[in-house]
Amino acid sequence: MIENKQLIICRCEEVTYEQLQSTARQHTCSARELKLRTRAGMGFCGGRTCRIALDAIMDSFIPDENKAVIPLKYQPPIRPVSFGTVGGRHD
């Protein structure tokens, strides 16, 4: 692959392939740790655009044996909502 530095994977946090690769190498981290260190998939959309790409990249660094388990946990809210909405205020 050429020009990894320019290849943004996570659009929200502008995390590049090169950043993911070097972080994975430096810290030999799990998928979850790589996400926390780089913030890939943790931006405004909550990983709804890049999650599958991230899974594939992380799997290329550290192949995961147990494919039945979703690599990164899904957590609510799965759509952006205001604190008012979560708090039960609906006006």
């Binding site: 659009r11 929200c12 502008e14 405004f44 959309c45 709804r48 655009t49 759509r79 952006p80």
Partner: peptide
């Protein structure tokens, strides 16, 4: 943060762009 221009990407409410 970076100021790069953004427009529609998914057009169905997933990407928030």
């Amino acid at each position: 943060e970076s100021g790069t221009p953004r427009g529609i990407y998914c057009n169905i409410g997933h990407c928030m762009e």
